[in-house]
């Protein structure tokens, strides 16, 4: 019986992903508006946007772009499904990496200088996220002895007690993934000031809808990984992820947009050192 419930939960997790991810974006917009003492759009606004974009006449700049936009969505969905299947962490990370590559290549495939620069910065954003993600995965391996997500579930104590610094650093990942300032250098949901809309510049109509949905799911995916820090009880895990989500929105409103150099500096020095110290503490003091 418990196995069946478990199965049902996993299927529910994947199927409800678009709805939950859309709601998260709605909450994000509402919270941002309230922090700016505005009333803000309705909670379902992201869904209206998505449906509208789907119905709009598309301007396809080249043949490869729709495919790549679809690839971005498909690989992100694959990443989420792999979490549900409790697969290998590294495998999941690199699957989602392909999704990002798809987006960057789609941006590069056009002639628009805005799009090209956006694509380049998207690659830089990937470059700054990856070390944090991989180091965290290594931390998980150190603790559980395996890269499998199922081993995290099987481990008796929640990871948050063993890897607190790694969890804190996930805020950087979340901010970069949500394309929020200070690190919204490659493009953001609103009019981006120096690059028009960065990587999204050349998408329109249904391709944009695909990319938009992909972006929501990307955030959802990152939040799911954060929820694994308390995998034993997914409600607490979700709450942790939501707290980090709130902090990311707060950071968005607290900082102006910084350079890509600052982004690399922050994630590679601050992020790196935090996780490394955490890992060294684990190894030296044998916390496990």
């Amino acid at each position: 019986m418990t196995q069946e419930i478990d199965m049902a939960l996993r299927v529910l997790y994947v199927l409800s992903a678009p709805i939950l991810a859309g709601l998260l974006t709605g909450i994000d917009r509402k919270l941002t508006a309230r922090m700016q003492s505005r009333m803000g759009p309705p909670l379902l606004q992201p869904f209206y946007d998505l449906i509208k974009l789907w119905g709009k006449e598309p301007f396809i700049t080249n043949n490869i772009q729709p495919t790549l936009a679809f690839g971005y969505l498909a690989f992100t969905v694959t990443g989420i499904s792999l979490i549900a299947l409790q697969e290998d962490l590294l495998f999941i990370l690199y699957t989602v990496l392909i999704a990002d590559v798809c987006l960057a290549v789609a941006a590069y495939s056009t002639k628009s200088p805005y799009s090209n620069l956006g694509g380049k910065r998207e690659l830089l954003a990937m470059l700054s996220i990856e070390p944090i993600m991989v180091l965290t995965a290594i931390g998980v391996h150190l603790i559980t002895g395996s890269f499998q997500i199922s081993s995290i579930f099987a481990y008796p104590t929640p990871l948050i007690f063993i890897l607190p610094a790694a969890l804190a650093v996930q805020v950087i990942v979340l901010v970069i993934d949500m394309k929020k300032s200070p690190f919204d250098i490659s493009g953001s949901s609103h009019a981006h000031q120096s690059l028009v809309r960065g990587v999204y510049t050349e998408f329109s109509g249904y391709t944009q809808a695909l990319v938009e949905l992909g972006h929501w799911l990307k955030v959802y995916f990152t939040m799911s990984l954060i929820a694994l820090f308390w995998a034993q009880n997914f409600l607490i895990g979700g709450a942790i992820a939501f707290v980090l989500f709130f902090v990311a929105i707060l950071i968005d409103n607290l900082y102006p947009r910084l350079d890509w150099k600052d982004m690399l500096k922050t994630s590679w020095t601050f992020g790196f050192i935090m996780i490394l110290v955490n890992l060294i503490v684990i190894v030296v003091f044998k916390v496990i």
């Binding site: 508006a33 505005r38 009019a191």
Partner: peptide, 14 residues
């Protein structure tokens, strides 16, 4: 104006 879903988008294609 965001109450009505209005977003000032800089891109004519969108």
């Amino acid at each position: 104006a965001e109450r009505f879903g209005i977003v000032n988008i800089g891109d004519p294609k969108q």
